[in-house]
């Protein structure tokens, strides 16, 4: 666990750092989760890359007040899953991590087409799963049938 502790130390040392939520019991399947401001995302991702994590998945959520992108990082050894949460306004861009984690290239393409979130400096944002001429963002809560469109604090309180 030395490796993980090192990384945690480095995160705590960052300005705006220190908001790491630790969950040893894996209640939500996540060991450490932290909210990262968009402009610090690349810095944090680079540290995780040094630690030899891999980007497991990247899921975006659409709230009334903001988008949230959840990056799940995992390690082959030791067992530790990091969740990075990045909030971004509906018309803001998020820095790309596709040059740090290559899989992010496609993950960002997917998030881009489904939510319309722009990733600054990603060289290839062609639609991945949707037809190339589509201009809808189907996973936004303003598209199609929607059960509920909530504010972020309604869920995370």
């Amino acid at each position: 666990m030395g490796k993980v502790n090192d990384v945690l130390q480095r995160f705590r040392g960052m300005p705006e750092g220190g908001t790491i939520v630790k969950d040893d019991a894996y209640k939500a399947g996540i060991a450490f989760s932290m909210q990262v401001p968009a402009e610090r995302l690349r810095e944090v991702a680079a540290v995780l890359n040094e630690m030899e994590c891999y980007l497991e998945s990247m899921a975006a959520l659409d709230f009334q007040d903001t988008f949230e992108i959840v990056y799940h990082f995992n390690c082959f050894e030791p067992r530790s899953r990091f969740a990075l949460r990045v909030l971004c306004g509906h018309d803001e861009a998020v820095p790309t991590v596709s040059d740090i984690f290559k899989t992010a290239m496609w993950q960002e393409r997917e998030v881009h087409e489904f939510f319309g979130i722009r990733f600054a400096d990603n060289p290839d944002l062609r639609p991945l799963l949707l037809p190339e001429d589509t201009d809808e963002h189907p996973l936004r809560k303003t598209f199609g049938k929607v059960n509920a469109y909530r504010r972020r604090e309604e869920i995370y309180g």
Binding site: L61, N74, R81, N147, A148, I155, Y156
Partner: peptide, 30 residues
């Protein structure tokens, strides 16, 4: 209950994961 959860398991092709965000209603929020 409200909150999110990531659950990973081993499918035949590799690690599959469900990331579910619940808003406390009968349907997932995401």
């Amino acid at each position: 209950p409200k909150g999110d959860l990531y659950f990973g398991f081993e499918s035949a092709r590799g690690q599959t994961g469900y990331y579910i965000v619940s808003d406390g209603s009968t349907m997932p929020y995401r």
